[in-house]
Measured scan of single mutants.
Amino acid sequence: MDETGKELVLALYDYQEKSPREVTMKKGDILTLLNSTNKDSWKVEVKITVNGKTYERQGFVPAAYVKKL
């Protein structure tokens, strides 16, 4: 869990989004878990840094590609 009590997951593999509802992640990324009720895909939040500014983006990733921490 992070400092706000949200559950975290670790990306086990790289994943490139295939639709606007998904998010891209790299192996080793730590993501905030938002919903894990679907056995196939979990909703997560990723933090992306562009030019020194951090943005948050929500979307789905394959459940088999992440592990709860």
Rank of each mutant, 00 (worst) to 15 (best):
D2I: 14
E45N: 08
T32C: 11
V9W: 04
L69G: 01
Q58T: 10
N51I: 04
D14M: 04
D40K: 12
K68P: 09
V66K: 02
T4C: 15
A11Q: 02
D29E: 08
G59E: 02
Y13A: 11
D2K: 14
R21Q: 14
M25F: 13
P62E: 04
L34V: 10
K6T: 11
K53R: 12
V23A: 03
G52C: 06
P20I: 10
E7V: 14
A11P: 01
G52A: 04
D29N: 05
K39Y: 08
M1I: 13
K18Q: 14
G59I: 05
N38S: 11
E56P: 12
E3C: 15
L33G: 01
R21M: 14
R57F: 07
F60R: 02
G52L: 03
T24I: 03
D2H: 14
K18V: 07
K43F: 15
E3V: 13
S19Y: 08
Y13H: 10
S36H: 07
S36N: 07
K53T: 12
V61I: 08
K43Q: 12
A11M: 03
E7H: 11
G28E: 02
Y55V: 12
M25D: 00
G52I: 02
R21Y: 14
V46Y: 09
R21V: 11
G52Q: 04
K67P: 02
V50I: 13
T24P: 07
S19E: 09
A64E: 12
M25L: 11
P20Y: 08
V44R: 00
E17M: 11
N51G: 10
T24W: 04
R21E: 15
K53I: 15
K47T: 13
K6A: 11
D40N: 12
K47P: 04
E3P: 14
E22T: 04
K53H: 12
E22V: 03
N35Y: 06
T32R: 14
L69N: 01
D40G: 07
V50L: 11
K67G: 07
R57V: 08
D2V: 14
L8I: 08
K53A: 10
G59M: 06
R57Y: 07
G52S: 05
P62Y: 04
F60Q: 03
W42P: 00
E45W: 06
K6E: 09
K47V: 12
L31H: 01
D29H: 04
D40H: 14
D2T: 14
D40V: 11
L31I: 07
M1N: 12
S36F: 05
L12D: 01
R57H: 06
A11H: 03
T24M: 03
M1K: 13
L12Q: 03
E7P: 09
V46D: 00
E3A: 14
I30M: 05
D29S: 05
M1S: 13
E22D: 07
Y15K: 00
I30Y: 04
N38I: 05
N38V: 05
L33M: 02
V23M: 07
L33C: 06
G52M: 05
K68D: 03
A11N: 02
N38A: 08
T32L: 14
G28Q: 00
L33H: 00
V44Y: 02
L8P: 03
E45F: 06
G59D: 00
R21P: 04
R57G: 03
